[in-house]
Amino acid sequence: MILNGQKILITGASRGIGKACAQRCANEGARIVLVARNENALEDVRRSLPGNGHIYIAADLLDPESCVPNIFKTACADGIKLTGMVHAAGIAHSFPVKTVSMKSMLESFTINYFSFMMLVRHFIQKKNSDGGSIVAVSSVASIAGWQGLSVYGGTKGALNASTKSLAIELADKGFRFNTVLPSNIKTDMLASITSVLDEAGIHEIEKKQPLGFGTPMDVANSVLFLLNPASKFITGTNLVVDGGYTAI
């Protein structure tokens, strides 16, 4: 198994892409630290994972300054350092700019971007890791325009940009930083965006992806590759995983 001996922290692990990443990494032998808000859902995911040593930490990343130090304190309480991290927590509010508010922008940036930076700040501490691979789940909305996603796309663009600088800043310490950029993936998040569309509208979106809607596991497979030592020469990359959406 390609992740034997690894210990990986995954945010947004109670559902969607984060949950799929947890399942995929556990299948490959990693111990998983699951992080999300919903404790019951986290426990369900933990119990479903193969292997031993998986734990969960219920935390609300809307307040990263107070919860992130506790996440790492708990994650490394067993004395075993982390070897990887996946930031899959995110919110995808979709709204036209005429209804934008500071509150909604701050909420989106806090979960999608600020919390990632705080997680990185703590992940790289000597007591928590000796290097490792960090993957942030971004979005093709960061490189391709999409009605109603100007704020969401901005949060994901910030992830892409910071990842490149982090890759340079921390390469000599043994850290790699990459993002994956999914397009329309069958998740609760997509359901909330398409909730106002009829079947024809949803079909229109699906048609924009030559390979159709993706699944959370499609994204998890690309994340697994970036966590895997086989990708040890890849850092600072924004890997598009979009079923051909941006190829058109």
Binding site: F95, P96, T99, S101, S104, G148, V196
Partner: peptide, 22 residues
């Protein structure tokens, strides 16, 4: 249209703190 429907959902949440189901 769908954009203004999403806008109305955002307006309800932001201005009235009401979740408006689709």
């Amino acid at each position: 249209d769908s954009m203004n429907m999403l806008g109305l959902i955002a307006l309800f949440k932001g201005e009235l703190d009401i979740i408006l189901p689709a």
